[in-house]
């Protein structure tokens, strides 16, 4: 895929200029597409529930292009790729567990009124040590 230079060390892997420019224009296209879809969503009759997945899919497509070609992941050692992608696993774990839990106790938070809590006035008037 990349330029082949016999005389370069094997860890040196220049990406062809054409490919880089191609990726760049694809990214610009996707960006404009995202903005346009978002602006015209109402008139195109896309239900708003779909907007978020669409936006995220487009963003992920862009992320893939950047990772694979700008960041040389396509040609990189698989260990590096796995190491990087595994971080997403932990992020999703973090998001899912907290989302699941906070979803269950939201009502408690919404009914919280600081002024009703016993001891608040005393706490605030307590002189600092």
């Amino acid at each position: 895929m990349a330029d082949h230079h016999d005389d370069l060390p094997k860890f040196c892997h220049p990406v062809p200029t054409k490919l880089l420019f191609g990726v760049f224009f694809a990214l610009i296209f996707l960006t404009i597409l995202t903005v346009v879809v978002s602006a015209l969503a109402g008139s195109m009759g896309i239900p708003s529930a779909f907007m978020f997945p669409i936006a995220m899919t487009l963003a992920t497509a862009k992320a893939f292009l950047v990772c694979a070609f700008f960041m040389h992941m396509w040609w990189d050692k698989s260990f590096n790729v796995i190491a990087f992608l595994s971080s997403l696993l932990f992020v999703s774990l973090f998001i899912c567990m907290t989302l699941m839990d906070t979803g269950h106790y939201q009502s408690t938070i919404e009914s919280y009124d600081v002024n009703q809590m016993p001891g608040v006035a005393e706490l605030e008037s307590e002189p600092a040590e």
């Binding site: 567990m97 699941m100 839990d101 979803g103 269950h104 106790y105």
Partner: peptide
């Protein structure tokens, strides 16, 4: 990590 929060208002499912 949630086992540190059994009594701090964490939901029962979790």
């Amino acid at each position: 990590w949630g086992h540190h929060m059994f009594t701090s208002g964490q939901s029962q499912v979790v």
